[in-house]
């Protein structure tokens, strides 16, 4: 048996926004903030609460780039491939990150759920191109080598965290 899903967090979000169809996106955003993705269990629940078909919710969730139906990694690395970053060579950085983590365009999250690597069309930090973000913190003027160093540092953090958790 699957453990039953705890909807209390969803209830809090619903009461914050009100059960209005127009708040679907804000509600999904908060759900995603809470769970780091949109758990499937949430859809029938929201469908009932908002009076909107599940297919419609799924349709909205899959339209917008920022929603994820799959659990993401502890560190979400987003490589900006906006024009400014692109002309200042953001793709080699992306390739290096993927190589370091064994990821690809289709496979964005590592098996241990440590890292997710995505591209983003522009972070609006073009003055510092090329940039990447890790969990929304901006890292400016990146190079492939700096990216490798960053991964090493984040791996160490991850290891320290799991040690802390098991201790």
């Amino acid at each position: 048996m699957q453990p039953t899903f705890d909807y209390s967090a969803v209830d809090d979000i619903l009461s914050l926004y009100g059960k209005k169809e127009s708040n679907i996106i804000a509600i999904l955003q908060d759900v995603q903030e809470r769970y780091h993705y949109l758990p499937r269990e949430v859809f029938p629940y929201l469908s009932g609460a908002l009076g909107v078909s599940e297919a419609r919710l799924y349709s909205v969730a899959t339209f917008y780039e920022n929603f994820s139906l799959e659990a993401k990694g502890r560190f979400v690395i987003r490589v900006c491939d906006g024009t400014a970053c692109h002309v200042r060579k953001s793709i080699p950085i992306l390739e290096r990150l993927r190589k370091e983590l064994g990821l690809s365009e289709a496979n964005k999250t590592t098996a241990d759920r440590g890292f997710t690597v995505e591209t983003v069309s522009c972070l609006g930090a073009c003055g510092l191109a090329p940039v990447i973000t890790v969990n929304d913190q901006v890292y400016p003027a990146m190079t492939p080598d700096k990216a490798s160093e960053l991964i090493t540092a984040l791996r160490a953090q991850l290891a320290a965290e799991s040690e802390g958790a098991s201790a």
Partner: peptide
Amino acid sequence: AVGAIDFAHRGSKMEISTAF
């Protein structure tokens, strides 16, 4: 008003789909 199907995804990946 059945809402069994809707659009999913976007652009050239768009399709008509049931939820999930």
